[in-house]
Nucleic acid binder design. Structure first.
Length: 552
RNA sequence: UGCCGGAUGGUGUAAUGGUAGCACAGCAGACUCUGAAUCUGCUUGUCUAGGUUCGAAUCCUAGUCCGGCAACCA
């Protein structure tokens, strides 16, 4: 069973593993890995991969490793390492003892590289970067062999050792695999295995001035760790022959199977670390964890729950073709989870004062409110109902349109848990004509009144102003990347954040950071984990309630 | 123009030679002290053309369209 209660589909990766296990391949074991590069924060696309890899390991009683693919110090940073761990753990997964860094294997990579050279399968190439590019050819044109290609092994070995020793300048020489310059697959045209880069590495410091390329390091890392199924995204499909070639040439303990699946695309957002970094750096959002970002830290701050994200990842499935998932599906999963668990509270986001004419000035009435109709265990609470209350401005219409069920002159509505009111008189601002207050007659809950709507309210005397942040989609178009020549930032939604002062019932004031609620009839909100202070919560709108009212 | 991969309602997916199903979205209704939730019903689909077969989304051929690949990135 999944989080959403449905049976998981046997998507193609499950079918492959089913067959492997049945055939006794790898002794029937399943070992996967999640291999992020620590150069940015994790987003919902990574969540798909995390749920897949950790989920598969769980299902088959195997193991999933967390391994940092930190072979290029240029953009990598410890800041990201810590954040990645927090996010994976938050999503609900545990790597146990299996926490690795590709950089821990640098010496082994190096030894395997020497093995390749000794076997005549790799050589140090002294072509300049420009010549290198020229010699590579093009998809429709075969490449040319480098003059270095037939350098004797001993000479390449010597050169490679001197590369490691720091005798050459950055970029001066590279180690290349000796495969086939005429291959229709560009990745097989003697790909670079090692480059010289004098960069400080976040873990190995200045121990190395040569760093292995992804294609060389990744498969070997998988093999060292005994990975059985190395699951990655579609763009690595053309790398697979190289992945296999490398593992076939050297004395690694096993040969994992690379399987590719389609990455997640979500409407109204972007999903690349580079572009998310850009939004954060250019202050288009408050940071990687801005609640509008599709990052896991952003979603966490927004109030999305791990269970909702896991259910979403199961629902979208796993295939080999590109798709664009509607963000509405994610929002559905969030509502589904929160509906079961969120405590109900009342908060008025755009207040209109209502004066109850037949209630005395001083006396308030205690009413009992249900904390969560979906969960009797959640209990009840008392709310003070007083002569002056706030209701939502949009719950009153001086000239109600057709099918308007709520308060209007001469019309009645139910106040949630507090009886009925009937509008008797409307006060206006003399200059603007704006409605400033509504006078109503009140009748207790046991009165037989037929109304079509129930509205929420707070006591004007007891409610407290709170900062509420309302969010809309970050972009105005479903696919901001559709036009590849245009700047995706041109599609940013200028109204994606609205800050309002809401009036919250007292029970909301001691909300703990991160605690989530349903504001009745409005939506799900959570106390911001960064900006809330004791007794002064700031609320982020997680997702609005579905609104089935007739529009217009 | 080369190579690799792919194509099922508006969207995401299932069906693995035997009734095209599920979810989201949309629409309609029931119920309701949240116009929420819940429940019911409805609309909409196998890229095209051939072929194999009693029978094809599924197998074959050709075409069309889409994505990826020419970092000393991952």
């Amino acid at each position: 069973m999944t989080d959403s209660g449905t049976l998981p589909s046997r998507h193609f990766i499950r079918q492959i593993i089913d067959r492997d296990v049945a055939a006794g391949k790898n002794g029937g074991n399943v070992v996967t890995r999640f291999p992020p590069e620590p150069n940015g924060y994790l987003h919902i696309g990574h969540a798909k991969s995390i749920c897949l890899n950790f989920g598969l390991a769980q299902e088959y009683g195997g193991q999933c490793h967390l391994r940092y693919d930190d072979t290029n110090p240029a953009a990598e940073d410890v800041e990201y390492v810590d954040a990645i761990e927090t996010d994976v753990r938050w999503l609900g997964f545990d790597w146990g003892e299996h926490h690795y860094f590709a950089s821990d294997y640098f010496e082994q990579f190096y030894q395997f590289a020497e093995e390749l050279i000794r076997k005549g399968k790799a050589y140090v190439c002294t072509l300049s970067p420009e010549d290198f590019k020229d010699y590579r050819g093009a998809p429709t044109r075969p490449g040319k062999e480098s003059p270095s290609r037939n350098r004797p092994s001993e000479e390449s070995l010597d050169l490679f050792r001197r590369m490691r020793a720091g005798e050459f300048a950055d970029g001066q020489y590279v180690l290349r695999a000796k495969i086939d310059m005429a291959s229709p697959n560009l990745h097989l045209r003697d790909p670079v295995l090692y480059r010289i880069k004098r960069l400080h590495h976040h873990r190995t410091g200045d121990d190395w001035c040569i760093y292995p390329m992804y294609d060389f390091a990744h498969g070997i890392s998988d093999a060292i760790e005994g990975i059985t199924h190395s699951i990655c995204t579609l763009e690595f499909e053309v790398h697979r022959p190289l992945y296999d070639w490398i593992l076939d040439q050297i004395s690694v303990p096993c040969h994992p199977q690379q399987i590719e699946f389609a990455r997640l695309n979500l409407t109204y957002t972007v999903m690349s670390k580079r572009r998310l970094l850009q939004l954060a750096q250019e202050k288009r959002v408050s940071g990687w964890d801005d609640p509008r970002m599709p990052t896991l830290c952003g979603m966490r701050r927004r109030g999305y729950t791990p269970a909702a994200i896991r259910a979403f990842c199961e629902t979208i499935g796993v295939t080999k073709y590109d798709s664009m998932t509607e963000v509405a599906l994610l929002e559905h999963c969030v509502r589904e989870d929160l509906n079961k668990r969120a405590l109900r509270r009342m908060a008025v986001l755009n207040p209109l004062k209502v004066i109850i004419t037949n209630l005395p000035d001083t006396a308030g009435i205690d009413v009992e409110a249900v904390n969560n109709p979906e969960d009797p265990e959640a209990g009840k609470r008392a709310m003070a109902f007083t002569r002056e209350i706030f209701i939502e401005r949009e719950d009153f219409a001086e000239e109600p349109p057709p099918k308007y069920f709520r308060l209007a002159p001469g019309k009645s509505v139910r106040l949630r848990y507090a009886g009925f009111i009937t509008c008797e008189r409307v006060e206006h601002d003399d200059t603007t004509g704006e409605v400033t207050a509504v006078h109503c007659r009140w009748e207790p809950p046991d009165t037989k009144v037929k109304v079509k709507a129930t509205i929420h309210w707070v006591s004007a005397e007891h409610a407290r102003p709170v900062e509420v942040r309302l969010y809309d989609r970050l972009f105005t178009v479903p696919d901001p990347m559709e036009d590849k020549d245009a700047d995706f930032k041109a599609h940013l939604n200028p109204d994606s954040l609205k800050i309002v002062t809401g009036y919250a019932e007292p029970a909301l004031l001691d909300a703990r950071p991160g605690e989530f609620f349903q504001f009745e009839r409005t939506g799900y909100f959570c106390a911001d984990a960064k900006d809330s202070l004791p007794g002064t919560p700031v609320f982020n709108q997680t997702v609005a309630l579905k609104d089935l009212r007739v529009k217009g």
